[in-house]
Amino acid sequence: MTVDLTATVCGVSFSTPVLSASGTFGYGLELHGLVDPRRLGGVVTKGISLLPRPGNPPPRICETAAGMLNSIGLENVGVERFAAEKIPPLRSLGVKVVANFFGDDEESYVAVAAALDRLEGVSTLELNISCPNVAHGGMRFGTDPTLAGRLVSACRAVTSKPLWAKLTPNVTDIVAVARACVEGGADGLSLVNTLLGMGVDVRTRRPRLGNVLGGLSGPAIKPVALRMVHQVYRARLGVPLVGIGGIATGEDALEFILAGAALVQVGTASFSEPTAMLRITDELRLLCEDQGVTRLADLVGALEV
């Protein structure tokens, strides 16, 4: 039995629904010897800003039960080097690229969106309004529906590529932010980014992260992420959803798909197992075979409540 894993989202066809999550797979080619990015549904790149950013002081990561905290701080090469160095090899390989991007303010968000819009080889833009680790930009936009909607609308105006908004879970009403983004012109919604957290070293009596606060990721956050995908799907906003948060197995991915995600992204799992996305894809295919499902897309939102 052959299973059709393809997913068409905002007019873009992905060969599988399993993509790398931003900030966990570099610019797509770092692991090429171990993971051929063409075998993934797509690569969501590190968040790109107008100018290069060095990132936050160390320590930038620490472990927690079934998860990890990070305060990387959106270290990236900037849009100019991204266009000149990172995109051409991905393009010549035929990798499906989703460019994640962010800014410090509306103007810089719009400038990056405009620059990415001109890039052949970028299929989709993912607007990061959810990073907990930077003083400006990021989560400030994602926790206020009005700001979020306005920012999406401003970026929408400068790109004809599909535009996903990546949401933060650090809100009391995820549907309100999701709705504002869709009203602002988002073609899709990625949810969720990391949960704001912290760790304390009891010996040094200092925070375990240089930035004090950081984002929690990994299996620990999966139930929260799944709940948010479910709530937003149920709100019937009319745009496809991309599920993210602690996905480490094919079964995890299928939970998100049943809850309403057309695509999923895998992040932290790639750190402990570089080939995790390939295994998850195989497991998804086997789950479909076991259930007699010939087309995975038929299961999107098939949750029975």
Binding site: F25, L31, I61, F271
Partner: peptide
């Protein structure tokens, strides 16, 4: 030796000044 998640440059977690 630093805290390190991936070992291959994906996470950018093991930075030194």
């Amino acid at each position: 030796e630093t805290e390190m998640a991936c070992g291959v440059g994906l996470c950018r977690g093991c930075s030194v000044a």
